[in-house]
Computed example of a mutant assay.
Amino acid sequence: MKKHAPATLRNREAIAEILACELPADGTVLEVASGSGEHAVYFADAFPQLTWQPSDPSPEALESIAAYRSEYDGKNLLAPIHLDTSAPADWPARHADAMLCINMVHISPWAATLGLFAGAARVLGKGAPLILYGPYFEAGVEPAPSNLAFDMGLRERNSDWGIRDIADIDKAAKDHGFARANRHGMPANNLMLIYRKG
């Protein structure tokens, strides 16, 4: 059954604009935590020269992604795979030329983010990007009231969730051989952070 995430319609064009600057000219993009699958279909269509590999740990999400894929006319969108970043040693994906992760870091335990970088260190080659999108707290930047309220709501739902500090993301990246190459401000108080493997 197809699921619908309203935010995908609001942010996909802005995200695609940045992806056009950061993704390689060809190869395979591993999308982690693909959710409903709406982004995967949109980006596969927007970047036909790239092979798009969606993934998610949720059976319901995998079903939704497969349903959207069945209506996609292109040949560059692969069947979704089960991938749980909190189990970084057991990824079905062995190689990718880029990785994209949208709105996962704040709605998952910190271990999932550490696993994301650990897995990325194995599947990405030198210079390949790991691209993160979502809300983040940043030293020297006053948090938006909406992000503070969102963070509080996340932590009330699950004490292991919450908006992360970019400094902590940067450290996790460095510990796994990545360095932040770019930071893009996005609508609705979100950011895109680009990490590249050293």
Rank of each mutant, 00 (worst) to 15 (best):
H4I: 04
A5Y: 07
P6D: 03
L9M: 13
L9C: 11
A16I: 00
E17I: 07
E17N: 07
L23G: 03
P24C: 09
A25I: 09
G27D: 13
L30Q: 09
S34N: 11
S34V: 06
G35I: 02
H39W: 06
V41N: 07
V41E: 09
Y42P: 08
D45L: 05
A46V: 01
F47V: 07
F47L: 06
T51V: 04
T51A: 09
Q53I: 06
Q53W: 10
S55Y: 05
P57Y: 13
S58D: 13
S64A: 04
S64D: 06
I65A: 02
A66N: 08
A67E: 05
Y68D: 04
Y68M: 07
E71H: 14
D73A: 15
N76F: 04
P80N: 02
P80W: 07
H82E: 14
L83A: 03
L83R: 05
T85A: 03
P88A: 11
A89N: 14
D90C: 13
A93I: 14
D97H: 15
M99R: 08
N103H: 01
M104E: 07
H106R: 12
P109R: 09
W110Q: 10
F117C: 03
F117E: 04
A118W: 12
G119S: 07
R122H: 10
V123Y: 10
V123K: 10
L124T: 00
K126I: 10
G127Y: 11
L132A: 02
F137P: 11
E138T: 12
A139E: 07
A139P: 12
G140F: 11
E142T: 13
A149H: 11
D151A: 13
L154F: 01
D160C: 08
I163F: 13
R164H: 01
I166K: 06
I166Q: 10
A167Y: 10
D168C: 03
D170H: 01
D170S: 05
A172Q: 14
A173V: 00
A173S: 09
K174C: 11
D175A: 15
G177Y: 08
F178D: 02
F178P: 01
A179T: 15
R180G: 01
G185D: 05
A188R: 06
N189Q: 12
N190Q: 13
L191M: 14
I194K: 02
I194F: 03
Y195I: 02
